[in-house]
Amino acid sequence: MRPGTFYDGVGGHETFVRLVDHFYEGVADDDVLRPMYPEGDLGPAKERLTLFLEQYWGGPTTYSEQRGHPRLRMRHAPFKVNPEARDRWLAHMRDAVESLGLPPMYESQLWDYLERAAFSMINTFEE
């Protein structure tokens, strides 16, 4: 971890845990997104997303140490990620980002990345 990173600026581990926990509260009841998580418990998915986001934003490199290169498109390929799934993912993530109450500069940076990532995960336009 390098001092002065985005990770440090937003509050580190606790902020990313809050973000991901809030996000998955929405996913848990979403009839389009929930089936994309094969585990009965969303805990493993929460941990993976937390570790990934922490690493991306300058925190610990635990994600890569445990799972290797993120390869996001490959990891999402088995799931039908269409524009509806993207929009639902973004709606839950928007709620989660807003719940953090970050300073505007940090919120804007985080949201820009999440929005671009969501658009890049689309792998079908089928309903």
Rank of each mutant, 00 (worst) to 15 (best):
S120A: 15
E126Q: 15
R2I: 04
A45L: 02
F125N: 14
E39I: 00
Y7N: 10
P103F: 05
G12P: 03
Y37R: 04
F23M: 07
V97L: 09
R88K: 13
L114W: 04
T62Q: 13
D21K: 09
D30A: 14
R86A: 10
Y7D: 06
H69S: 12
R116V: 06
E115N: 15
L33I: 01
Y113W: 13
G40V: 01
N82T: 00
M121P: 00
V10K: 05
L49Q: 14
D21L: 06
V81Q: 03
R73D: 10
R94G: 05
L49E: 10
S120K: 12
F125W: 13
S64T: 06
E54Y: 07
P70L: 06
Y56G: 07
E126V: 01
L102T: 05
Q55T: 08
L100D: 11
Y7F: 13
D29C: 09
G9M: 09
S108H: 12
M74Y: 13
V32A: 14
P83F: 03
T62V: 05
R94Q: 15
A96E: 06
R88N: 11
R48H: 14
V32Y: 14
A96F: 01
Y63Q: 09
T50E: 15
P78M: 11
E39D: 15
V10W: 09
F52C: 10
D31L: 09
E84R: 09
L19Q: 14
S120D: 15
L110T: 00
